[in-house]
Amino acid sequence: MRKIPAALLSLALTASLTAPLASAAGTGSTLPELDGHWSQSAFERWHAYGIVEGDSRGMRPDANMTVGEFAAILSRAMGYTETVENPYADLKGTEWYAPYILQLTAAGILQGDGTNCNAEEPMNRERATVLFARALGIRPTAQPDLSGFVDGKDAADWSAGYIDAMAKDGIIQGVGNQTLALGSSITRGSVVKILDSSVAEYAVEEGATIDQDVDGILLVAADDITVDGAAVSGNLLVAPKAGEANLTVKNARLERDLRVSTHGATLTVADSQVEGDVALSGDRASLTLGSGAQLARLAVDGAGSSVSVESGASVETLTARAAVKVDNQGAINKAEVQADDVVLDGKRPAHVEVADDVAPPQNSEGEEVTGSEDSQEPGQGGGGSGGGRRLRV
């Protein structure tokens, strides 16, 4: 699998939708207008993938990017399709960028200012950093420290954690002289650079196998992808663009999160270690943990999903935030039940915690399931699925 800098990703979406596209394919230099520009190689790679074609004015790497153009970048790259009812006073809904604004809003990435989305205003560096982090699954630092930047104190409370996380990962470095310039408009070239520094691999070829280490984020945007024997240092993201994705992870080590946001995804993990979170946010996802799979935390947010933990596989903490059916033949240490209609078949988790006002989990026979260790009294062995105490959180 060819390693693709994130930079190209950004451009896929910066191109204006209001002007006819002009192809530079077939020329000696794919983008001669960018000869010598620091962003040239990144733009050319995405152009080769047919994502970046520019408009009648060219690529314009030094031009400021609007919020609407930025929304188009992320939405196209990730393949968002779901929208919400328009909540913005300044969005008519007929603008070329309106679908992208509403798609990012539905995905929880774009939130506006409470009234407006300000789509035609220039995107600033602070907001761009936060939107990138949200789209790429980068979690904000709990206690951000931006003292290394001379203007770090200017970061708002809603942005500081994301900015700190992006800086610690080496994705952003500021504009020079240890300055973030958060209020300044961001150029197309700078957007490309941020993507180039974040997404190390963009898997867009159906049926591809990634068998070499990925130093950064691996973004899966195609069906039937296999990660075999590789270590991934950044998040592994299965984007909606992958459709009803089939992803197989074997003999691999994921040092960050594995996040699946596409509906109907089928995921298999075997003989692999996931050190971060595994998050299933798309509905009707199917996850099979084969022998040797070791997960620290598994969270299910998509309704109608199923999880199979085979013998020899383990999950430290399973959090069910939506109805899910779990067949556990391996080992689950703790199950956190935060939604109704959770089914726990097979071996009981060691501990079961049920949130207030939530129905306790049952097995397929309709029997309440408690933790195998929670149900033990001093001097007693494990009992059946009933009779144990239910923990409330």
Rank of each mutant, 00 (worst) to 15 (best):
D154W: 11
S29G: 13
P20T: 08
V175K: 07
L91F: 11
V369G: 03
D224K: 10
Q178V: 00
V191W: 06
F149Y: 11
E53F: 15
K241T: 02
V192T: 03
A270Q: 05
V393M: 11
N251K: 02
A156P: 01
P99W: 13
M59H: 09
R284L: 13
E121T: 00
S56F: 15
A200K: 09
S308A: 14
L219K: 00
Q273K: 11
I217P: 01
G26W: 14
I73E: 01
T66K: 11
T268A: 14
V300Y: 07
A303F: 03
A339T: 09
L17S: 11
G137D: 11
D257Q: 03
R45M: 12
T209A: 02
M59C: 01
A231E: 01
L146V: 06
G304I: 02
A208R: 05
G304L: 06
W158A: 12
G290K: 03
V307M: 09
H47F: 15
W158K: 13
A7R: 00
I186S: 00
L219I: 04
G384R: 04
Y162C: 09
I163F: 02
L289H: 09
L13T: 07
Q273W: 09
A119D: 01
D90T: 00
R60I: 09
E368V: 14
A165M: 08
L131D: 03
Q173T: 07
L258V: 12
L31C: 10
L34V: 04
S372A: 12
G371D: 10
L391I: 13
S10M: 11
Q362T: 15
L182P: 02
A322D: 14
R253C: 02
V220E: 03
A296G: 06
A72I: 01
D356R: 08
H351T: 14
A135L: 04
L104G: 03
A156C: 06
A279D: 15
C117Q: 00
T187F: 13
A107N: 08
G304Q: 10
L110M: 03
E44H: 09
E69K: 13
R60Y: 07
N116E: 07
F70G: 02
S197I: 04
M1Y: 08
T248Q: 06
A181W: 08
L21A: 15
A245L: 07
Q40Y: 10
S147C: 06
A245N: 12
S10I: 05
E353Y: 12
R76H: 00
R57K: 14
G28I: 12
M1Q: 09
E336N: 14
G79T: 07
D55S: 14
E275Y: 10
R390E: 11
A15Y: 06
D257P: 00
V343N: 10
V232M: 11
S198H: 04
L318R: 12
N64P: 04
E377D: 05
G176H: 02
V278D: 10
T115F: 00
R389M: 14
G170L: 05
K92W: 08
S23W: 13
Y49K: 05
S198F: 05
D357A: 13
A15V: 09
I4T: 13
E368L: 13
G382F: 13
G54R: 08
Q178N: 04
F132Y: 13
R139T: 10
A156W: 05
V337M: 02
Q103N: 02
G276M: 03
E120L: 04
D169E: 11
T94Q: 07
E316W: 15
S56I: 15
P240W: 09
V309F: 10
G264A: 11
T370D: 02
D211R: 01
V369Y: 10
T266K: 11
S305F: 04
